[in-house]
Amino acid sequence: MTMKLSRKEVEHVAFLSRLALNEREAEEFTRQFNQMFEQFEKLNELDTSQVEPTAHVLQMQNILRQDSVRASLPVDEVLANAPDREDGYFSVPRIME
């Protein structure tokens, strides 16, 4: 099987998603990604030059709301799942600027 997607690209995608892959997983995902690619290659055989790209499968449009304020959550609930908090803030490892 010719590899359309290299292992390096799979590792890059994993990095962007902050996923740590071990050796076995990197191999396995590379293989699986390439299988998926092949499926899409198959679809690509269809002539879609006359078809508009689909952004959404629903034909609905303009689902909009009025600009009105509703109650927010209590701060304690907002922070309930935070691994760490400080004075009402979420606390995260330092971001360098």
């Binding site: 803030y89 606390s91 330092r94």
Partner: peptide, 14 residues
């Protein structure tokens, strides 16, 4: 994001 000089963390207000 709020960064305090010398602290090992950053604070987030959403």
């Amino acid at each position: 994001l709020v960064h305090t000089e010398g602290e090992p963390f950053s604070l987030v207000d959403y």
